[in-house]
Simulated scan of single mutants.
Amino acid sequence: MNDNKSKRAIGFLHAWNGIKEVTKTERNFRIHLIATITVIIAGTIIHLTLIEWAILMLAIGLVLVAEATNAAVEKLIDYVKPEANPLAKTIKDVAASAVLLAALISLVVGLLIFLPKIYGLF
Rank of each mutant, 00 (worst) to 15 (best):
M1S: 12
M1P: 09
N2H: 12
N4E: 08
N4G: 11
N4V: 00
K5L: 11
K5F: 10
K7S: 05
R8Q: 13
A9I: 06
I10C: 01
I10H: 15
I10E: 10
G11H: 13
L13H: 07
H14Y: 04
H14T: 02
N17G: 12
T23I: 09
K24N: 05
T25N: 15
E26W: 06
R27H: 01
N28H: 13
N28M: 12
I31L: 15
I31V: 15
H32S: 11
L33W: 07
A35T: 14
T36G: 15
I37P: 03
T38Y: 13
T38G: 15
I40P: 01
I41C: 03
I41W: 04
A42S: 12
I45G: 06
H47P: 04
L48S: 03
T49S: 15
T49A: 10
T49Q: 06
L50V: 04
I55F: 08
L56Q: 08
M57Y: 15
L58Y: 12
L58F: 13
L58G: 13
L58I: 13
G61R: 13
G61C: 11
G61N: 05
L62W: 01
V65Q: 05
E67N: 14
N70A: 06
A71V: 00
V73T: 14
V73Q: 07
L76A: 00
I77D: 04
I77V: 15
Y79L: 10
K81L: 08
K81T: 13
P82N: 04
P82Y: 05
P82C: 08
A84N: 07
N85E: 13
L87N: 08
A88H: 11
T90D: 05
I91C: 02
D93K: 09
D93Q: 12
V94D: 03
V94A: 05
A95C: 05
A96Y: 03
S97I: 01
S97V: 01
A98Q: 03
A98S: 03
V99Y: 07
V99N: 00
L101C: 05
A102S: 12
A102E: 02
A103F: 11
L104W: 03
S106Y: 01
V109Y: 07
V109P: 12
G110E: 08
L111D: 04
L111G: 14
L112W: 11
L112K: 11
F114N: 10
L115N: 02
P116F: 10
I118N: 08
I118Y: 13
Y119T: 02
G120K: 07
G120Q: 11
F122M: 09
